[in-house]
């Protein structure tokens, strides 16, 4: 129960940071999606057969919907589907390394953007307005997210190695 509550609070704080603090650090009007990156890292660091990251996707999606213009439920469904697909992919891939980390993060960012936009246009009955634009903003957004994801990934590795795992006595 405690870790569910911690994750809920964590995503709430992340969404506040994203909508107020991080605005000042936009590049060409684009920002990294902290919640998407966090959900991805949660999935990537978890055993593919465990299901805790589904809760992360649910809460993360909830806060993304709350603090955005979209309908409540769109980000939740998108992130839950993304979690399911990523877990399947991780079961197929034998070895997960930094290369696969970047590939899967790249796919996840684009899947989230395209799928949530598609569902949004479906709800608004504007399917014809849905299109994929490979603009400068698109490139900036992807690179910004990948760089931040990579930094957090290495930070987590560092903490896991030197902070959380302490050498046993007499070892």
């Amino acid at each position: 129960m405690q870790r569910f509550l911690t994750l809920f609070l964590f995503f709430y704080i992340l969404s506040l940071i994203q909508t107020s603090f991080l605005i000042h650090f936009n590049i060409k009007g684009e920002l990294p999606n902290l919640i998407l990156i966090s959900v991805f890292l949660l999935i990537f660091s978890e055993n593919p057969r465990k299901n805790f990251s589904f809760f992360g996707a649910l809460v993360g999606g909830f806060f993304l919907d709350i603090f955005s213009n979209s309908f409540l439920g769109i980000s939740i469904i998108t992130l839950l589907l993304m979690t399911f697909l990523l877990k399947r992919a991780m079961l197929i891939l034998k070895e997960l390394n930094i290369f696969w980390f970047l590939i899967l993060l790249f796919v996840s960012i684009n899947f989230y953007n395209l799928f949530s936009n598609f569902i949004n246009s479906l709800i608004l009955f504007k399917v014809t307005s849905f299109r994929i634009d490979f603009t400068e903003a698109f490139v900036v957004e992807v690179i910004y997210n990948l760089i931040l994801g990579l930094i957090v990934f290495y930070l987590l590795l560092f903490f896991k190695k030197y902070v959380f795992i302490r050498p046993q006595k007499g070892a």
Binding site: L16, I17, T19, S20, F21, L22, I23, H24, F25
Partner: peptide, 17 residues
């Protein structure tokens, strides 16, 4: 419930940037 925190975070972000 978030607006006071968002306001503070906004000001902090402004100063940091």
């Amino acid at each position: 419930i978030s607006s006071p925190i968002q306001k503070t975070l906004w000001q902090v972000g402004d100063r940091v940037s």
